[in-house]
Amino acid sequence: MDLEKLATNFQQKINEEIKIEPKDWMPDAYRKTNIRQISQHAHSEIVGMLPEGNWITRAPSLKRKAILLAKIQDEAGHGLYLYSAAETLGISREEMLEQLHTGKAKYSSIFNYPSLTWADMGAIGWLVDGAAIVNQIILCRTSYGPYSRAMIRICKEESFHQRQGFEILWVLSQGTKEQKAMCQDAINRWWWPSLMMFGPKDDESPNTAQSLAWKIKIKTNDELRQQFVDMIAEQVKVLGMTLPDPNLKWNTKKLHYDFGEINWQEFWNVVNGNGPCNKQRLNARIKAHKDGAWVREAASAYAAKKNQPQSKVA
């Protein structure tokens, strides 16, 4: 089949919602976009373990400690599924990690913010996992089969993440004066960054049109962001807390919440490496990888020895 025919077939499949599988023909740019997006997502899961990992040893009760550990362990699992999904496109995990460590690949900027108090474990679960779910539920329908299936598995676990976060904040909101203040402070710090998780505005998002045509994306950044605002603006009332936006208001005509302007300068600053924790997060990942090199080498050396039949290794 010639190239034109292949391309037509490909787009037809997309239009008919037939998943693209690893062995199917696909345009180079489709492959590249998927590798970029899936690996970025995988890196986000792994780097995302760090701000929460920061509180495991200080969790205020044994029950909270167990829930937090299990939650972070889930994120490691999500990273694994996603690295495997990306590998089906012909890139190795080692290459992807290399791209992360050299800064060539990005991860979600949200994890460049610090987790300063216990209430941040609540705010991260509620807002950050909450924003991730809005993104990911829609990604279950994405056109690349392995990515779509990974998202379906991940989404099943994510709702527990948001619930445990909300529950942490709920308990704080019912607690002492100090706990209430801690709760509001965490919401204030995580609200705007979580809105930024949906990416630039549609008219400034260079890849959106093509990604929509290929159904790598199903909804635009702004559509998803609006959906998230509408959801959180209601939930925050249950906590008896507020969102730090004087312009947040229900719009009776649009049947959506209006909200204030995101600080895009801050957004680009963090993307470009100037967030409060960019260096710290990346260095932690690089250190873990470097410190672990001898362990991985030993494991493969041992496996190689054992696969050599009859060769006597003392």
Binding site: M49, G53, T57, K65, A284, A288, D291, G292, R296
Partner: peptide, 13 residues
């Protein structure tokens, strides 16, 4: 638990 997020490879983490 101090290793969580810092182990040599994700599977072992």
């Amino acid at each position: 638990s101090e290793w969580c997020g810092h182990a040599p490879i994700i599977e072992q983490d």
